[in-house]
Simulated scan of single mutants.
Amino acid sequence: MKKNYHDDEYFEEDDDIDLVDLVFTLLRRWKLIVLTAVPVIILGVFFAMTRPNLYEAETTLIISNNATAGITLDSGDLSVNQKLVVTYSEIAKSRDVMSRVIKKYDLKENLEEIAEKISVTPVTNTELIRLTYVDKDPKLAEAVTNELATEFIKKVGQVMRIRNISVVEKATEPVEPLPKKRVLIILASIVLGTMVGAGFVFAIELLYSKVRKPSDMEKILGVKMLGMIPEVVLDEEGEDSHES
């Protein structure tokens, strides 16, 4: 049964984005995607391979309930301590605390860079908090962490009037560096490079002015297409066969 080529049902509106067309566009332009993605991937590999070793030293502090000097904590302060971690973190990263540490060890980083290396986290369901510091030198990481804990305790006593914060475990020199996550960085660069390449291809397709579909002609001329002239091919028996 032959199709009626001027039938309105034969022509489908193609104004919406066709997922199949997008896939074939990517396949057709795969070389351009590769050429765009390769520099991004190379930069990602270079960054992953040249990352320096970083060492993290950790000290553990406790806010005890012992009735010693100063103001003590009651039984309800366990949950309060967990909520004060943000406050403790800001105190540990305060200008006064960090300035003293920087001056003592003659650190080259500024206050903002030092603050990024400091972390204060709670130990769940306990009165313990962990203070960590990251540095390229494991010995310096140990020394700075212990000094930060000392200055932190002094500052908390001055600001919050709590005198029962003490060190449970001093920081020791870290032996193993932190994971560099090289595989994750390389995978992320591959994904990013592919996305950049695909975006570049789609941008080119949007600017591509060649007519590829009947709907393109309708948009250009501003009129409705009435029909399509089929391609006529003679088979071996001499009969006409229509291929649109």
Score class of each variant (00 low, 15 high):
Met1Glu: 12
Lys2Asn: 14
Tyr5Pro: 03
His6Thr: 12
Asp7Ser: 15
Asp8Cys: 01
Glu9Lys: 12
Glu12Ala: 12
Glu13Phe: 11
Asp14Ala: 14
Asp14Leu: 11
Val20Ile: 15
Val20Gln: 08
Leu22Thr: 05
Arg29His: 08
Ile33Tyr: 06
Thr36Ile: 13
Thr36Tyr: 08
Leu43Ile: 13
Phe46Ser: 12
Leu54Val: 08
Glu56Gly: 01
Gly70Asp: 07
Gly70Val: 05
Leu78Val: 13
Asn81Glu: 11
Asn81Leu: 11
Leu84Phe: 04
Leu84Ile: 02
Ser89Val: 04
Glu90Trp: 04
Ser94Asn: 09
Val97Trp: 02
Ser99Leu: 10
Arg100Phe: 06
Arg100Leu: 10
Lys104Pro: 05
Leu107Pro: 06
Asn110Asp: 15
Glu112Leu: 12
Glu112Gly: 05
Ile114Asp: 00
Ile118Glu: 01
Thr126Ser: 14
Leu128Tyr: 11
Ile129Gln: 04
Leu131Glu: 05
Thr132Gly: 01
Tyr133Met: 08
Tyr133His: 09
Leu140Phe: 05
Leu140Gln: 14
Thr145Glu: 07
Ala149Pro: 02
Ile153Pro: 03
Val159Thr: 13
Ile162Asp: 00
Asn164Met: 01
Ser166Asn: 13
Ser166Thr: 12
Glu169Leu: 02
Glu169Ile: 01
Ala171Val: 04
Val175Glu: 14
Glu176Cys: 00
Pro177Thr: 09
Lys181Thr: 06
Arg182Cys: 01
Ile186Gln: 05
Leu187Trp: 07
Ser189Met: 08
Val196Lys: 04
Gly197Val: 02
Phe202Lys: 07
Ile204Glu: 10
Glu205Cys: 04
Val211Asp: 09
Pro214Lys: 07
Glu218Trp: 03
Gly222Tyr: 02
Val223Ile: 13
Val223Pro: 00
Lys224His: 08
Met225Asp: 00
Leu226Tyr: 00
Met228Ile: 15
Ile229Val: 14
Ser241Phe: 14
Glu243Leu: 14
